[in-house]
Amino acid sequence: MEAFRILDAIACPLPLSGIDTDQLIPARFMKRSRADGYGDYLLHDLRFDESGQPKPDFPLNASRWAGARVLVTRRNFGSGSSREAAVYALVDYGFACVIAPSFGDIFASNAVNNGLLPATVSEEDCEALLAGLEDGDGTARVDLEACEIRAANLVIPFRVDPVWRTKLLNGWDDIDLTLSHAATIEAFQAKDSSARPWLVPSVRAS
C-alpha cells in the first residue's frame, strides 16, 4: 500500500449528511471483480439519472471538481453496510481522503485498509471548509504528519486514530504484521483449546 503523508489536491465539497455505503455503491454493482475497477460506480444513483446521464447539479459532475482526490462531506459518512466495495469505488475514482464530522465505524476501518484517509473534523470546521472550497480555488492540502488541513484561508485540525495514522503514514498491511506473531497465535490456541473445549463446533452435521 502507498504511504500517505501530504496530499495537495482538488477537494470536492459534497454537502450531504449520512451518505451511506448503499449510496457509495448500490448493491446491484457488487458482482464485479476488483481488477475491473469500481470507480464508475461511485455514488452511481446520485451521480446519474435513470437513463445513465450525469446529473448536472451533482458536484462530482461539475468540471470544476474533475480530478478531485479529497471529498468533504457532512456527518455519518459511510454508515450502513460493511461492503468494502464502497471504499473501492472511492479509491478507484481517485479519492485518497474523505473529510467529515463522523464516519461509519466499519467504513473507516475498510478505508484505512485501502490507504484512504478518513479525516474527522468538527461540525463547524466542516461547514467552514465546505463554504471555503466553494468560494476559493477549490484545492486543499491534507497533512497527515501534522493532522492539519489547509484550504482557502483556513487551517483546520483533523482527528484520526493514532494507530491508523501510523499505518497510513507507512503504507502498512496488517497481514504481514500479524504473521510475524504466528508463534504467539499458535500458543494462544493451544492454551485456549483446553480452557474452552466446546469452542470447536462438535457436530459436522450435513
Binding site: S82, S109, N110, D174, I175, T178, I185
Partner: peptide, 15 residues
C-alpha cells in the same frame, strides 16, 4: 461486521 480486507485477514490468521 467486517470488510473484505478483514475477512481475508481472518481467513489467513483467525485473528
Amino acid at each position: 461486521g467486517i470488510g473484505a480486507s478483514e475477512v481475508a485477514h481472518v481467513l489467513m490468521t483467525q485473528t
